[in-house]
Deep mutational scan, measured.
Amino acid sequence: QEELVKAFKALLKEEKFSSQGEIVAALQEQGFDNINQSKVSRMLTKFGAVRTRNAKMEMVYCLPAELGV
């Protein structure tokens, strides 16, 4: 569980995922086979993730800066 949270936060820091499906796929690539869209959705809510525009003006998920991840 701890490893999943770390990987999840690291992915969001990249600010390149525009959908929950993309986050699920990226986590599965890292070996988290039991991850699915509903789990990702709950984690996004739990950590207060928001959708914002990145440098390329794409809408992407990211974590609020005050979490200091």
Rank of each mutant, 00 (worst) to 15 (best):
Q1T: 12
E2Q: 11
L4P: 01
L4S: 01
L4E: 04
K6D: 08
A7F: 06
F8K: 00
F8S: 00
F8M: 07
F8I: 05
K9D: 03
A10H: 08
A10D: 09
L12I: 06
L12G: 00
E14H: 06
E15I: 05
K16D: 03
F17H: 06
F17V: 04
S18R: 15
S19L: 07
S19N: 09
G21H: 12
G21S: 13
G21Y: 12
E22Q: 15
I23H: 00
I23G: 01
I23K: 00
I23S: 00
V24C: 06
V24Q: 05
A25K: 13
A25Y: 09
A25P: 00
L27R: 00
L27V: 01
Q28V: 11
Q30W: 08
D33P: 14
D33K: 14
D33T: 14
N34V: 05
N34C: 10
Q37S: 10
Q37R: 15
S38N: 12
K39P: 01
V40C: 02
S41K: 15
S41D: 13
S41A: 14
R42F: 13
R42Q: 14
M43K: 00
M43T: 00
M43H: 01
M43L: 13
L44G: 00
L44P: 00
T45Y: 10
K46W: 14
G48M: 05
G48D: 04
V50Q: 09
V50A: 07
R51C: 15
R51Q: 09
R53C: 07
N54E: 02
N54S: 04
N54M: 02
N54F: 02
A55L: 07
M57C: 04
M57Y: 10
M57L: 11
E58L: 07
M59K: 05
M59D: 06
M59H: 05
V60T: 04
V60G: 02
Y61F: 07
Y61Q: 02
C62E: 04
C62K: 10
C62M: 13
L63H: 02
L63D: 03
L63V: 04
L63R: 02
L63W: 06
P64Q: 05
A65Y: 11
L67T: 15
G68I: 09
G68Q: 12
V69Q: 14
